[in-house]
């Protein structure tokens, strides 16, 4: 199964501008599998992405927008993307600021399906 997770992550990291991808347990923010470039703080990325997704989910559900299927945080020097994955996991990507978000989103959704 781990190999399946890794293959799914590798597919996402092939998108130009992606610095790393990881599967995170949505409840506690622990790393399930990762494929990160050197220098990316994996445990911090996992914990904070899970926490951010949880908080945004509350706001989204209260506003009757339902469960977020894709979250995109844009910052001046990079992007953080997150999408729910099977079994309560979260697929998280950290990328350059000028990444093709549409392509990354597509590959993230395909990766999520691949590990279902």
């Amino acid at each position: 199964m781990t190999t399946g997770f890794q293959k799914a992550l590798d597919r996402v990291t092939r998108v130009r501008g992606v610095r790393g991808a990881m599967l995170v347990a949505g409840d506690d923010g622990l790393v399930v599998a990762e494929s990160l470039m050197e220098g990316v703080r994996g445990n911090a990325l996992a914990a904070l992405a899970a926490s951010l997704a949880k908080r945004f989910r509350r706001a989204s559900e209260t506003a009757a927008c339902g469960l977020p299927q894709f979250i995109h945080l844009q910052a001046s020097q990079g992007s953080l993307l997150a999408a729910p994955a099977p079994s309560g996991m979260l697929l998280v990507v950290v990328a350059e600021a000028d990444i093709n978000v549409g392509l990354a989103r597509l590959e993230m959704l395909k990766a999520g399906e691949a590990i279902a």
């Binding site: 009757a64 469960l67 977020p68 979250i71």
Partner: peptide, 8 residues
């Protein structure tokens, strides 16, 4: 931050 939900 942008979030695409099921309904909004």
């Amino acid at each position: 931050i942008m979030a695409e939900g099921d309904a909004g």
